[in-house]
Structure formats: structure tokens, C-alpha cells
Amino acid sequence: MPQKILITGGSGLVGTRLSEMLIDQGYEVAHLSRQPSKFSKYKTFRWDIKEGYIDENAITYADYIIHLAGAGVADEKWTEERKQEILKSRVDSANLLYSCLQKSDHHVKGFISASAIGIYGNSGDNVVSEESILADDFLAEVCKAWEASSWQINTLGLRTVILRLGIVLSDKGGALPQLARPVKMMAGAPLGTGNQYMSWIHIDDVCRLFIRAIEDTQFEGVYNAVAPHPVTNKEFTKELAEVMHKPLVLPKVPVFALNLVLGQKSGVVLDSQRVSANKVLQTGFTFEYNYLDEALESFYDKKY
């Protein structure tokens, strides 16, 4: 019997690719969605986080739950209302799953949740690991609350894994197309000082890591989901320009200009995060894309 995987946030960037890869590997996949569409490729159960509603058949269907739901951090301006939504969409959804798992007669064997390396805040050149001190800015507080709400599920005796995602590289969405756009228009430049570290991971490696966390029971607790070789923003921009065969013409984009455009969100691109992949490597997991040039070539080399 194929294992059945229930995914929240299944139509997002990671959820879409993960669903495809799970199917390719012989799993069955279902999504939880606010508005199940008749045209979805996947079996879809309805839930409504604001209403505190979840179709109980979803929980009894699943062998494993992968929790990716959460309002996009970089999608909109950070008004107070939006910040509340970023927080509540993650925490309330995990709380809802927890209370349903508590009440229902299910056969779920494990719960795997996303989090983010934003939990470490701006750590400059210091290498941070899962044991490092956590920050207390807005994104870090969101991640802490998100992880706490997910970790409750461990108290129900379910193996719980939390993957702190770095910058997920994909040409289908997320940060990469936004970083590539100015380069494509011959206006590429490092952001801010350009010395801030970017801890990135190829989308296929993220998905392979989620699948590994299902299959390998030694996975429990928190892991950084980042490739082993973080780069500075300057190096990232340079490699991207090289792969796209474009020149880098501009000097650095100054910090004040980014603050003007992005407001509070500027931390997302200006904070330095040099995150260690050692804990994941020690499980025996191997990355398909260890170095940035390999990852970028997988998206852009064919096109240019």
C-alpha cells in the first residue's frame, strides 16, 4: 500500500514541486485547501483556519502530514494587519492540526513542518547552527511561534521534524526570479553592502529533504534546510549574472534605497545569515546541488 501524504500549503512553491516528486516516488498525495477545486490534480480536503474547521477525513486519510501553509512573507507590504496574517496563518493552522490529531482516531506516523532561517535574525559573518541563540526581530518571533505550535504535535507521541528553510531557489517563484529580473535587464547589482550572507537551497533538494524526513526515522527535531555553501549577496549576484551571460553594470544598490522601497521588509534581503548544514549532512543526506553555480545552471543555463 502506498503511503498517503497530506500537505498543507500544497499549491505554494515548495508544495507544488514536493507533490510532483512524491507522486513520482510512488506516494499518494492529498492537499488541504480553503477552496478545493474540482480541477485539482490531487485529492483535496477542505479546511478553514479562520473558522477553525477541518474535514476530519483529511486526518484519517494521512500516514504523514507535511505542514507548509503560511502567508507569503515577501508578497505584500508589512502593514500591522499583514504582519498579523503572516503570524496567524502559520500558528493557527498548526494549532488546528494539533487539536484535530488530538481528537481523532488516526494513523498518522509523523508530522513535518517548515520553518525558516529567519529565526536566527541578522548574524553577520558568524556561522549559525540549530543550537545558536535565536533572534527577537519580527521574522524570528514568527518562526519561534510557528515552531512552538508545530512542536506541540510531538507531545501526542508523533515523530515531529521541523525544517528551517533557507532561500529556496526555483525559477517558478520565490526570491530567484525577483533577483534575476534586474540582471536580465542589465541592471544587476549587489544589494546593500553586498557582504551579507545568503543561505540558499535548490527547490529539489528541499523536497528531497522533506521526503527523507518522512522515510528516515532518525529525523526528529529541528534541522537547517540549507545547502552546505552559503555565499555573500555580492557572490550570488555575480554568479547569477555569469550564468545568465549578463554584465553587472551598476554599483551596489544602497541600503537607504532598499529601505525606501521595502520598508521593514528590507531585512529580508539585507540581513546576513550564514547557516550551517552540518546536522543534515550528518544524517547521511546528500545534496544534489552543493554549490550555487550548479543550482543556478539548472535553471538558467539552458535558456541563455
Rank of each mutant, 00 (worst) to 15 (best):
V249M: 15
D75N: 11
D171M: 13
I66C: 06
F285R: 02
V222G: 05
A71R: 04
G267W: 09
D171S: 10
N290P: 03
D205M: 09
T160D: 05
L292W: 03
D271M: 15
L87N: 03
T217F: 14
E131G: 09
L240C: 02
K83L: 10
K265C: 11
A30G: 06
T160E: 07
V222T: 13
Y120Q: 13
I119S: 02
G173L: 01
D204V: 06
P182W: 00
A135L: 11
E85L: 05
E215K: 15
A295P: 06
W47V: 00
D271Y: 12
A74F: 10
D293I: 10
F138G: 11
E76Y: 09
L248F: 07
L250S: 00
D137K: 09
S104Y: 03
A145W: 00
L258E: 01
E28A: 14
W78G: 08
D301F: 15
H229F: 08
L209N: 03
E20N: 12
G263P: 07
T193W: 01
K38M: 06
Y120R: 10
K265P: 12
T60P: 13
M198E: 01
N95P: 05
V161E: 07
I65T: 10
D125N: 14
D293R: 08
H67Q: 07
P254A: 01
L292Y: 09
F256L: 13
H245S: 06
Y53D: 03
K252F: 00
T79L: 14
K252R: 03
L179K: 01
N259F: 15
D137A: 07
L292C: 06
A58M: 00
A148R: 08
Y223G: 05
S272M: 09
S298T: 10
L281A: 06
A116T: 07
F219V: 13
A145N: 02
F39A: 12
A69T: 00
K184H: 07
S129L: 10
K103H: 09
Y53Q: 02
